[in-house]
Design a protein around this nucleic acid. Structure first.
Lengths: 229, 229
DNA sequence: CGTCTTCTTGATCGCATTCAACGTGTGTGG
DNA sequence: CCACACACGTTGAATGCGATCAAGAAGACG
């Protein structure tokens, strides 16, 4: 299941073979599976790479490094999601395992041409790409126009939207990761958590586990920012 | 030619038939051409719409409106570019003509399936979508991690990169549009222009026409922000 | 000429950053 | 078991960048 996709797709029988998007499975050449420990880098920004990847299990962050040592996380990837697929030969971001990961590697060119050769798969894949595009575009609004509190609210709200069952959210990433995802500092994120707690909107079980105690309040503060969503 | 694409594609014979991406042309049913005057809205956020569009001529902005009246421009679209193509039935953003525009309308579903039925076209289109995705992701870094001056520098630098020939840049959009694109206010954008002028990096011919007089300084200030680009 | 929109400039305010110190949790070795 | 180290998280105080409020200048157009 994906980690932060606003536009969820039907991941029906995703156990036998990790799907590209919903029911599609790559007909590509048997791909190799690699394992990464938490903290390991999968590829680097600017690196020539003929591969793209599908996450079988774990959590991956993809980010850009800035001159001053800063960092902007482009996206978190969860089970089944494709990443590292570029339109040019080199990787545009750095990818790093947040938790221990199992990853399927594909030859980029073969992957694309195998997508192209099946009409059904193409449609699914194009729709998946469009969904990813819009996920990214949603974040433009987030980064460009929201306050710190709204950013963190929205982040938690979307996480909860894809929660298995319980109301309890387990954060697999650090505060620093969240900050780098939201274009904030770690301190501001921490303060936002404190503020949300004080408002009674969330309850912190531990620093990594929390419950959204007032989902409606969070929802409305989110859509106070975005006009309709 | 596209307006703000970091990843440019070869728009070779784009005169006879506006291309999807490079040499591809939609085999879709003969599409109707519509004309919009500057300021007219092409579609609204949340609107049910079976169409997607290809800009023949003009400049279009796509944006999201916020509760407080604020606005985040998702993207500017220039000649030949596809917009309004979503993975669901409704439009996610509002599109508005900045200049007078000619626009080709396609049936969304037919458009996608016609893409899918030709292997060659699919590959081109997927690469185009990937380029658009990365264009959007680049902006995440911009919005999340850059100062106002860096945002405006980067904006102008990328505009110049797709300039026809001369060093002179003609801004077809207002300061407000630029602000809404960069997640700033109109005042801050204006001040940034002033600062760049004072630094001797740009020369303002008029408020809408300018020359990048020190491209290297601008370039380096941009890549002071991003580690490598 | 006047009106309207767009753009610029100045003064002040506030939110997020920065700098700094203090907690908290976890794992390691004595 | 405790002692210690180290990474992660929280909290406080001061600073600064961009927003806000406000006024005026510059174009565009009839």
């Amino acid at each position: 299941m994906s980690v932060l996709s606003t536009y969820q797709e039907n991941n029906s029988q995703s156990h036998s073979e990790p799907a590209v998007s919903g029911r599609v499975r790559p007909v590509t050449t048997p791909a190799s599976v690699k394992h990464y420990k938490a903290g390991e880098t999968i590829y680097f920004e600017g690196e020539e790479s003929p591969y793209c990847f599908q996450l079988i299990d774990g959590l991956v962050k993809e980010y850009n490094t800035l001159e001053d040592g800063g960092c902007q996380i482009i996206e978190f990837y969860g089970d089944g999601e494709i990443f590292g697929l570029t339109e040019i030969r080199e990787q545009l971001h750095t990818a790093e395992a947040i938790t221990d990961c199992s990853v399927k590697c594909f030859q980029r060119d073969r992957f694309i041409s195998s997508i192209a050769c099946s009409t059904d798969m193409t449609e699914q894949f194009v729709l998946n790409l469009l969904a990813r595009l819009h996920r990214s575009q949603d974040r433009l609004v987030m980064l460009g126009r929201m306050t710190a509190l709204q950013k963190v609210s929205t982040f938690l709200f979307r996480l909860s939207g894809m929660n298995d069952d319980s109301e309890e959210i387990h954060l697999k990433m650090t505060r620093q990761d969240i900050a780098d995802y939201l274009g904030l500092t770690i301190e501001t994120v921490s303060r936002a958590f404190g503020e949300l707690k004080k408002l009674g909107w969330i309850k912190l079980i531990s620093s990594r586990k929390l419950v959204l105690t007032d989902l409606e309040a969070i929802r409305s503060s989110v859509s106070e920012a975005t006009s309709l969503r």
